[in-house]
Amino acid sequence: MKLMDTPGGRKIHTGYIPSMGGIGFVAAAFISILIWFSYENLIEVRYLLAAFGLMFFVGLRDDMVNLSALQKMGAQVVAALMVIIMSDIRITGLYGFMGVHELPLYTSYGLTLITIIGLTNAFNLIDGLDGLAGSISLVSFVFLGWWFMYSGYDAYAYFSFALVGGVLSFLIFNWHPAKIFMGDTGSLSLGFALSILTVLFIDLDGTMIGAKGMKFAAPIATGVALLIVPIYDTLRVFLKRAAKGKSPMSPDKSHVHHFLLRMGLRHDQVTLLLVGVKLFFIGIIFLAQGWGDNILLPAVLIMAVLIGLRLDTVTLRRVKKINAESPPVLVKREKKKPQVHPKMLRKIKINEN
Score class of each variant (00 low, 15 high):
residue 216 F to L: 13
residue 72 K to T: 02
residue 173 F to P: 00
residue 303 M to Y: 05
residue 161 F to V: 07
residue 182 M to Y: 02
residue 252 D to Q: 00
residue 295 I to W: 12
residue 334 E to A: 11
residue 103 L to C: 03
residue 203 D to R: 05
residue 272 L to S: 07
residue 58 V to E: 05
residue 148 F to M: 04
residue 159 F to Y: 12
residue 280 F to T: 11
residue 305 V to F: 14
residue 104 P to F: 00
residue 90 R to P: 01
residue 178 A to D: 04
residue 170 F to I: 14
residue 124 N to Y: 03
residue 71 Q to T: 11
residue 141 F to E: 10
residue 138 L to V: 01
residue 292 G to I: 09
residue 260 L to V: 08
residue 306 L to F: 14
residue 14 T to F: 01
residue 295 I to R: 10
residue 302 I to S: 12
residue 237 V to E: 05
residue 114 I to F: 15
residue 43 I to S: 12
residue 324 A to P: 05
residue 203 D to K: 00
residue 140 S to T: 15
residue 347 K to A: 13
residue 26 V to G: 10
residue 353 N to D: 14
residue 81 L to C: 12
residue 333 R to V: 15
residue 196 I to H: 09
residue 199 V to F: 08
residue 179 K to C: 08
residue 241 R to V: 00
residue 27 A to V: 12
residue 207 T to H: 10
residue 288 A to W: 10
residue 293 D to M: 10
residue 11 K to M: 04
residue 90 R to W: 01
residue 300 V to D: 01
residue 222 T to A: 13
residue 56 F to N: 01
residue 179 K to F: 02
residue 220 I to M: 13
residue 277 V to W: 09
residue 255 H to T: 08
residue 332 K to R: 09
residue 103 L to S: 10
residue 211 A to Y: 12
residue 153 Y to A: 14
residue 8 G to S: 07
residue 40 E to G: 05
residue 323 N to F: 09
residue 53 G to D: 00
residue 321 K to S: 14
residue 19 S to E: 14
residue 33 I to E: 09
residue 168 L to M: 15
residue 198 T to A: 13
residue 113 L to E: 00
residue 19 S to W: 03
residue 115 T to I: 12
residue 122 A to D: 11
residue 302 I to K: 07
residue 287 L to Y: 15
residue 183 G to S: 06
residue 119 L to M: 15
residue 234 T to R: 05
residue 315 T to F: 03
residue 134 G to I: 05
residue 76 Q to V: 04
residue 116 I to K: 00
residue 111 L to D: 02
residue 14 T to K: 12
residue 111 L to E: 00
residue 168 L to E: 03
residue 154 D to N: 09
residue 341 H to G: 05
residue 299 A to R: 06
residue 176 H to M: 04
residue 251 P to Q: 00
residue 299 A to M: 14
residue 198 T to F: 07
residue 345 L to A: 08
residue 242 A to T: 11
residue 295 I to C: 02
residue 266 R to S: 14
residue 321 K to D: 08
residue 186 G to C: 08
residue 3 L to T: 09
residue 136 I to G: 09
residue 184 D to G: 08
residue 79 A to N: 05
residue 119 L to I: 10
residue 299 A to K: 05
residue 65 V to N: 06
residue 252 D to R: 07
residue 5 D to N: 13
residue 205 D to C: 12
residue 346 R to P: 02
residue 111 L to V: 14
residue 238 F to M: 15
residue 83 V to G: 03
residue 221 A to G: 04
residue 266 R to H: 13
residue 284 I to A: 08
residue 160 S to G: 05
residue 319 V to Y: 04
residue 283 G to N: 14
residue 26 V to I: 14
residue 322 I to S: 01
residue 273 L to E: 08
residue 113 L to Y: 02
residue 14 T to M: 08
residue 274 L to D: 01
residue 287 L to W: 14
residue 332 K to M: 11
residue 169 S to H: 03
residue 216 F to N: 03
residue 216 F to Q: 05
residue 347 K to D: 15
residue 217 A to P: 01
residue 112 T to P: 06
residue 303 M to P: 00
residue 305 V to H: 02
residue 346 R to M: 11
residue 129 L to R: 06
residue 156 Y to Q: 12
